[in-house]
Amino acid sequence: MIQKNETLLEIHDLSVSFRMYDATLEQKELQVISNLHLRVRPGEVVAVAGSSGSGKSLLASAILGILPSNASVSGHLHYKGRELNSQLQKELRASKIALVPQSVNFLDPLMRIGPQADGHKKPYPTEKRREIFASLGLDERVEKLYPFQLSGGMARRVLVSTALISEAELIVADEPTPGMSLSQALHALKMFRALADEGKAVILITHDIDLAFGFADRVAVFYAGTTVETAPAEDFCTGPEALRHPYSKALWRALPQNGFEPIEGFQPYAGSLPQGCLFAPRCPMATDKCRCEKPPVQDIRGGEVRCFYAT
């Protein structure tokens, strides 16, 4: 199994659902991630793009094993060929897998930034931290501040720095760039790239896809809780003709620099997902087949796609 060995994280057929109350006393299961596949190799930056509320952040939580207690997970997660169960997750969370959380609320409000960024490591990696802080444009005085004294962008950079300071093999970065200026965002992404070049792996969950394309090796496009396409990043730089799934093409065309054209409609809700292809209700080329049947994953031109009519 050479394939397995060189894969750092393998996600196979992952589904996540939540138990919720509906209007009455009954509880129901809401599936928010369904049949998701993703493979991450060492030395690779995988960008995860897609619509808001498509389950991208939940994927991060599922990898780290920090989903809320009313969630249930099915499918397989493998880390270096070992089944990633909750015990292994707990072990790895402390050392090998780092999360750059999405929200600034993840910072401890009563702790100064310096020690907070160091984590639990002793002796404190002060020198290294200062270096990383400086390279992210964080002043030395920032380490003496409390989280409420930071601006949104500064707090984000602190969050990014925590992952850079830790010596994790896999970094899951959940929206690390919003609020940063362009040069800071580029710099943060460059640092992620550098980590990957050292042999680590980065999962980069982001809305700033135009930035991410330049630094990622592959891009996984999420829609309504599953991956509709996984493609080499170059395809996104080339344009819609190189892309396989109609949603990826729509995403590309909606970028401000590429036309800024929205498509109609909304992402379906978990709980009222369409029977067939999840994108069918908004897809310009959907047929009756798309509306009844779920398209399987196909390998096309070096990428994976879930569409009957992908070329």
Partner: peptide, 17 residues
């Protein structure tokens, strides 16, 4: 104030339109 920063690009384009 950064009304579309937390949104995906398609939603961003929809809101701005």
């Amino acid at each position: 104030d950064e009304i579309s920063t937390m949104l995906d690009v398609i939603t961003q384009a929809q809101i701005w339109s």
